Measured scan of single mutants.
Amino acid sequence: SSYVCVECNFLTKRYDALSEHNLKYHPGEENFKLTMVKRNNQTIFEQTIN
């Protein structure tokens, strides 16, 4: 599966890399929402900020 930060167009295969991205680029933000999307037999988790 892949993880994408929709706000930044940041894409990674690792959830911990997304967490690091959030700490660096969205410090103090807590209203993240992950949406699971299936595309071409791949699972993509799209992160948006509410």
Rank of each mutant, 00 (worst) to 15 (best):
S1W: 04
S1L: 05
S1E: 11
S2W: 11
S2Q: 05
S2P: 07
Y3E: 00
Y3A: 02
V4R: 12
V4Y: 14
V4C: 11
V4A: 10
C5L: 01
C5E: 00
C5D: 01
C5H: 00
E7H: 08
E7Y: 10
C8A: 02
C8P: 00
C8Q: 00
C8F: 00
F10L: 10
F10P: 00
F10C: 07
F10I: 13
F10D: 02
F10H: 13
L11R: 10
L11H: 12
L11N: 13
L11F: 12
T12S: 04
T12H: 12
T12Y: 03
T12F: 09
K13M: 09
K13V: 11
K13W: 12
R14D: 13
R14Q: 14
Y15R: 11
D16I: 06
D16E: 11
D16P: 14
A17N: 06
A17Y: 13
A17M: 14
A17I: 13
A17T: 13
L18D: 02
L18H: 04
S19K: 12
S19Y: 06
S19D: 15
S19M: 11
S19E: 14
E20I: 05
E20Q: 10
E20N: 02
E20G: 08
H21Q: 00
H21S: 01
H21D: 00
H21I: 02
H21P: 01
N22I: 02
N22T: 06
L23T: 07
K24V: 08
K24Q: 15
K24W: 03
K24I: 09
K24S: 12
Y25G: 13
Y25V: 10
Y25C: 05
P27L: 07
P27W: 08
P27G: 08
P27K: 15
E29H: 10
E29N: 11
E30F: 15
E30C: 08
N31W: 02
N31V: 02
N31S: 11
F32E: 03
K33F: 07
K33C: 07
K33E: 12
L34M: 09
L34Q: 13
L34H: 05
L34F: 02
L34R: 09
L34T: 15
T35L: 08
T35Q: 12
M36S: 11
M36V: 07
M36T: 15
K38S: 08
K38P: 06
K38V: 03
K38M: 06
N40K: 05
N40H: 07
Q42M: 11
Q42S: 13
Q42G: 09
Q42L: 10
T43F: 10
T43L: 07
I44S: 13
I44Y: 07
F45S: 14
F45D: 04
E46M: 02
E46P: 01
Q47I: 00
Q47D: 01
Q47L: 01
T48Y: 03
T48S: 07
T48I: 06
T48P: 05
T48Q: 06
I49S: 07
N50E: 04
N50G: 08
N50Q: 05
N50L: 08
